[in-house]
Design a protein around this nucleic acid. Structure first.
Lengths: 112, 112
DNA sequence: TGCAAGATTCTACAACATTAGAACAATGAG
DNA sequence: CTCATTGTTCTAATGTTGTAGAATCTTGCA
């Protein structure tokens, strides 16, 4: 991966709203309560409902707990996809969303 | 650290030129040859002249091997400092620059 | 002290990012 | 089939970023 690609990944994560969306999928917690504990940012790592790194109905759930229009959220999803961080697919009413672990790993490697 | 702070760090790394500067300091290689190997991005990890994570005369050296005005580079340094990624100090003619390893570590933790 | 080199700050502007709303497409329920 | 729901695309407004140049400040040397 080239420097440009890393810059693109970091850009995708550089917007607070988009980072929140990413973390909701990555840490797999969609409630607004899950995104904040006190004034600190934290996620409930464990949650019975789903497996780390993938999320069904991601779009709807995220719309529900964020104060942004649907079009804006759609746009942010596309940015995250375009950077390769997530992959999404519609399966009827299910909007399925997965983290691309390889890309996340490559960021870790980059900073090694 | 809050979500906002992480977003700020990622923003600092989201510009290709600035990321290059950061990596020059982080991997400690300032020659243009060191920043590219073929079309891939790579650094010479080992270099006799200095220790990973700090760089003397950083500003001048980086100016020399990048095609940007001094004011622009100064601006990028400030962005990196403001995000907490690096710390710089002038010591006479030496412009000393150090990576803030704690912040780099906190990114790794964030993505854990 | 005066000068040259190095770094910063200010200004300005083009390019790009964030956002919402309206119009549209796809899907499933009744 | 019709309608409500869900997601996308287009457009436009508004805000932010990246960049250079000029002016300025800082430092060391002659």
């Amino acid at each position: 991966m080239k420097l440009k690609d890393y810059a693109k990944i970091f850009k995708a994560l550089s917007n607070e709203q988009r980072l929140k969306i990413f973390m909701m999928i990555y840490k797999n917690c969609c409630t607004p309560e899950g995104t904040k504990v006190g004034s600190e940012f934290r996620f409930k790592e464990e949650s019975a409902c789903c497996v780390k790194g993938s999320l069904d109905k991601a779009f709807t759930k995220i719309c529900d707990c964020m104060n942004l229009s649907r079009s804006t959220i759609s746009h942010h999803f596309k940015e995250l996809q375009s950077a390769g961080l997530i992959a999404c697919e519609r399966d009827g009413q299910i909007y399925r969303c997965k983290i691309n672990e390889e890309v996340v790993d490559s960021i870790k490697d980059f900073l090694k």
